[in-house]
């Protein structure tokens, strides 16, 4: 039985991923929600991806304690119950207006650019207009969501989920993306990188954040998308957690790195990326994108500019 812990946030997240890892391939699993009182966006996304992976692999999952769970309504509003197949038919509850506040769990099944727009427009209302004060925040959210969702679609071979939330004042933006695919270390190993087989998973994840290291041929993005995303989050003073396989990498406070290895040979079945940053830090996204590019892509000897016309 998988007993969902009381709190899945902050320090409780990584132990929870370890719990999921322990039960990922159980032929039958009973999941007990009775004690759950608080769950972060990252925890929700990880749980949805875990359940989707089990369903895809035709593993039997039953649930217990949802009726008495103290945050049942929150889990409903965030689409967890519907996406996991625990609630069907017409919605019998009233949804809050999510505009400017949150985006419930969305499966990454439709076009990534539309998904990015849906999330960015919710987090940064009006930002679709480049002259709007929210345009920087819109651009930051769109860039991060589309790059991460591309990775889910192209490399993870598993259904993924994304969710986001923010507060209208100068609060934090939180974005979480999770999938039940093969994970970053296995993906790179399959692409022929011997070092991805030799290194511990947390070191492989760290290497995947270095531009050009994780390129897998055409279409060529040279691993730049993930690298620039991580660097942009750094430049916004934000926080980024990447968990995949047995490894977890946490970047915060301008690239200070913390790495962890799941205990007892456990491997989280997929990849989870959780990002948070302060809204105001995204206002000058263009500058931060430029700075990230300078830091991650080496200058060439003859820096002739491309020709740009208005």
């Amino acid at each position: 039985m998988l007993s969902i812990p009381k709190y899945i946030n902050a320090d409780g997240l990584i132990p929870f991923l370890g719990q999921l890892a322990t039960h990922s391939d159980a032929a039958e699993l009973l999941v007990d929600f009775t004690g759950l009182q608080r769950v972060s966006l990252a925890g929700l996304a990880a749980l949805a991806a875990f359940m989707a992976r089990r369903a895809r692999n035709r593993l039997v999952t039953n649930v217990l304690g949802l009726e008495s769970c103290r945050i049942r309504e929150y889990l409903r509003r965030m689409n967890l119950l519907r996406l996991c197949g625990w609630e069907q038919g017409d919605e019998s509850f009233e949804r809050h207006d999510p505009q400017g506040r949150f985006v419930p769990l969305e499966p990454i099944t439709h076009r990534v650019d539309d998904l990015g727009d849906q999330i960015a427009a919710c987090i940064a209302p009006g930002g679709e207009d480049y002259e709007n004060p929210n345009a920087g925040l819109y651009d930051a959210a769109w860039y991060l969501v589309t790059e991460m969702a591309n990775n889910v679609q192209q490399h993870s071979r598993g259904m993924g989920f994304v969710a986001a939330q923010t507060t209208p004042s100068d609060g934090f933006v939180r974005i979480a993306i999770a999938d039940g695919g093969c994970g970053i270390p296995a993906s790179l190993a399959d692409a022929g990188f011997q070092w991805a087989r030799d290194l511990p998973d947390e070191d492989v994840i760290e290497q995947a954040l270095v531009a050009r290291v994780s390129s897998k041929g055409q279409p060529s993005n040279e691993g730049v998308g993930l690298t620039l995303s991580a660097r942009i989050v750094d430049l916004m003073g934000g926080h980024m957690l990447i968990a995949s396989g047995a490894g977890t990498v946490i970047r915060s406070n301008h690239s200070v790195l913390k790495k962890e290895h799941l205990a007892a040979g456990n491997r989280y079945p997929g990849t989870l990326v959780a990002i948070s940053f302060r809204r105001s830090e995204a206002a000058d996204f263009e500058y931060k994108l430029h700075k990230a590019k300078e830091l991650e892509i080496p200058l060439r000897a003859s820096p002739n500019s491309a020709t740009f016309q208005p």
Binding site: D113, D117, E128, Y130, W142, Y143, E147, P219, L228
Partner: peptide, 17 residues
């Protein structure tokens, strides 16, 4: 309105490579 590096690199980088 928006582009990411996945798209732009795939479109442009290979031409120069």
């Amino acid at each position: 309105r928006s582009a990411n590096s996945s798209f732009v690199n795939a479109l442009v980088s290979g031409l120069f490579e």
